[in-house]
Design a protein around this nucleic acid. Structure first.
Lengths: 227, 227
DNA sequence: CCGAAACTATGATGTATATCAATAATTTAG
DNA sequence: CTAAATTATTGATATACATCATAGTTTCGG
């Protein structure tokens, strides 16, 4: 399984499940992975209510996760970049509580959960990596809670942009210059802000010389956007 | 190891790790568990920055988890009741990112992480239960995100009280009549509200005939507090 | 049991951000 | 390529909740 789509060739493997794996382990993981056709904007990996069949590792592009409130409002809970694994929240009830939707044309590696479970039986490192990843997501959630509870609109957006930049940097892209694959509305939804506030603050940050904005293109001009 | 403090005798085992275990598995789990002396109000299970040594299952009483912002502000990320396991966020970096502090006199079962790991090697059900628990925490976090982003102060507090009631119910206590072990300030901190707003809304909910408040004692008078 | 400290309640005022409104820019579909 | 739809910007106004201020209540150490 030495095709150009295997984990060893993947630029993001050190961020993804194969982190710290031996060659033999990676090959086994490769065997269970299903490489899917591209997903296009708005196409969904899964919907809330569907039984857990697979987790999905982002290979290229980006996705959003969201849940629906009782009255049908969307709440975005995460944006996913290459190397991120989507679907861990479904393990609890063996059913997806959330939706995952492509923000742009994107590729994923499908990881059938039953195979992953079996493989975990053999490879402690895989189990550890799965635990590590979920634990890391818990940490991120705690950070997000603080951002929402303690930060002003300006601080939330600054933190969001800096964090995106950092994540792009981790993936070998520019940490200061990137394209937003999500709309202002989606950013606002995620950060608990109105679209107008997002727009105004982007303008303000630009006036302050902290970023430059050209539509979806963002340039971070100062090392940290914090005041 | 058939003492009165073993998992089989514990009222909360079906909410805790032994969920769905066989007798033999429970006995093995019992062997690794360290029962500690009571923790008193303000005493900490661990602090941020400490290496991960153990997870802790609440046996009685309650705890809060919180993180500190860069400028030293506390952000409460969870309240823990009997049966809850604390410390999963430390698996990622093998270091606690958060603090865990007793809200009242409380008992815990200490679960040394290395023993838990070894035991997981033998018992797939333990591994699955650990995964399930962490996944469930991810789901709760998503819900919390929505509460903060979409709900008004009144809705947040109503949701908080209903949720607490539900959790007490799951544990065999009254779901409608309970004592808050946390202060108004801690509730406000968790929900992103000022202490004054928490106080005012409790008064308001009482005037609306939805709850009765007597200091820390709460009675939920209507099945759902939602409007 | 008592005094100090912490916690809670409630009113008056201020403010950050939502909402409303209108226009402009960009993306998408035919 | 063009029209329609979606997305983004910017200004004016409204409001939910924070902050400030004060007093009352509970908790706790000695």
């Amino acid at each position: 399984m030495q095709n150009q789509l295997c984990c060893q060739q993947c630029h993001f493997s050190q961020l993804c499940l194969p982190y710290s794996f031996e060659l033999k382990e990676i090959e086994k993981l490769d065997d269970i992975i299903v490489r899917k056709n591209p997903y296009h904007r708005r196409q969904r990996l899964f919907e809330a209510g569907q039984p857990l069949h697979s987790l999905y590792a982002v290979r290229s592009g980006s996705f959003k996760s969201f849940i629906l409130s009782e009255d049908g409002q969307e709440q975005i809970t995460a944006f996913h970049l290459p190397g991120d694994v989507i679907g861990f929240d479904a393990i609890h009830n063996k059913t997806h509580p959330s939706f995952a939707e492509a923000l742009e044309t994107s590729m994923v590696c499908e990881l059938p959960y039953s195979s992953l479970d079996e493989l975990g039986e053999m490879f402690p490192k895989l189990r550890q990596q799965l635990s590590r990843t979920m634990s890391g997501m818990l940490c991120q959630n705690q950070e997000a809670l603080m951002v929402l509870n303690k930060y002003t609109a300006n601080e939330r957006l600054s933190h969001f942009l800096a964090s995106l930049g950092h994540r792009f940097g981790d993936r070998g892209f520019s940490p200061t210059s990137f394209r937003l694959s999500m709309t202002r509305s989606e950013i606002g939804n995620y950060l608990g802000l109105s679209i107008e506030t997002v727009s105004r603050i982007l303008t303000q940050l630009q006036k302050d010389g902290k970023i430059s904005v050209e539509g979806k293109l963002i340039n971070l001009l100062v090392p940290t956007l914090a005041d």
